[in-house]
């Protein structure tokens, strides 16, 4: 058990190290001279030298890499070229909005997926089941950047129920969270259906029915609880799609999170901020995945008691 936890943490650490190195080298993708791209062609030579020095680009790559990692260890991510503020501060400002959006999307997805999945499994091959299948196929096929504008069109512009964009109060969270959560709800509901159908065929479910338990107790207590484990794994893996989708969703709704910061920084050519955003989002994802793995072990008594 302890060995498993340690090995998971160790492999997460290796991945984080690899991710940080890859992010470091991203700046070298900028065609030509990144300093010139950032400042424009009309910049003064002294400004260029100053920026080159500020970014450490006048040092050998090995020294740059060492500086970068020692900075990371001290949570020093450098300064934004655009605002001249420490990048760590910028990230901390934007992080709560992204966490809020992601968790709300996750909750909406779970709230839609479980009833839908249970219904299609219990009433397999009924009109409900086929309807749920169609809905989930549509949910997977609608990209965030189209679903978002559609929801704005219907609920904000035509019906006037919810705000168009921004982050003020709970009402402004509804449409972004729904946009981000729909695809996950679609995937999750199919997963719930499939695993529930599997557990419903198990011996212990037959036993539960044989001893005269009410059908809802059989489904909720015996079948669904056992169907949860694979669903949780999928949930952890899908969180990546959620974090990735948050970038686009934040742009659609002008949601002031990390995704919006990333895209704004790209358009302003504030490359150190882009690097820091990509790093933070990826490391968060690795962290959540590792926690999911550990939670899986803890939740499964067969593994926990070994």
């Amino acid at each position: 058990m302890l060995n498993f936890i340690l090995s998971r943490i160790l492999s997460a650490a290796i991945v984080v190290l690899g991710v940080s190195s890859l992010v470091f080298f991203l700046i070298h993708l900028v065609p030509g001279d990144p300093v010139e791209v950032m400042l424009g062609e009309s910049a003064q030579p002294t400004d260029r030298t100053a920026l080159r020095h500020a970014l450490g680009l006048d040092q050998p790559v090995a020294v740059q890499l060492l500086d970068y990692f020692s900075g990371l260890l001290r949570f020093d991510l450098g300064t934004s070229l655009h605002t001249q503020r420490p990048i760590a501060d910028l990230l901390l400002e934007r992080l709560p909005a992204t966490i809020e959006l992601t968790i709300a999307a996750l909750l909406i997805a779970v709230a839609i997926a479980f009833p839908l999945g249970v219904l299609s499994a219990v009433r397999k091959d009924s009109a409900w089941d086929h309807g749920a299948r169609v809905v989930s196929l549509l949910g997977i096929s609608i990209p965030h950047f189209w679903l978002g504008p559609l929801l704005i069109l219907v609920f904000s512009l035509w019906l006037g129920w919810l705000p168009v964009s921004g982050r003020e109060g709970m009402a402004s969270l509804v449409l972004p969270a729904l946009t981000l959560g729909t695809a996950l709800a679609a995937i999750l509901s199919r997963m719930v259906r499939a695993t529930l159908l599997e557990t419903l065929g198990e011996d212990y479910v037959r036993t539960a029915r044989a001893k005269g338990l009410a059908e809802h107790a059989v489904i909720l207590r015996h079948a669904l609880c056992n169907a949860l484990l694979p669903v949780i794994t999928v949930l952890g893996l899908q969180l990546g799609a959620l974090l990735g989708g948050a970038i686009v969703t934040e742009m659609v709704f002008s949601w002031p999170g990390l995704g919006q910061l990333t895209i704004e920084a790209i358009h302003r050519r504030d490359y150190p901020v882009v690097q820091a955003c990509v790093l933070l989002i990826s490391v968060t994802y690795v962290g959540v995945n590792t926690l999911t793995d550990l939670a899986y072990v803890w939740l499964d008594p067969r593994v926990r008691l070994q």
Partner: peptide
């Protein structure tokens, strides 16, 4: 390492 970047990030 490549899988650690969520979605199309």
């Amino acid at each position: 390492i490549f899988l650690a970047f969520p979605g199309i990030l």
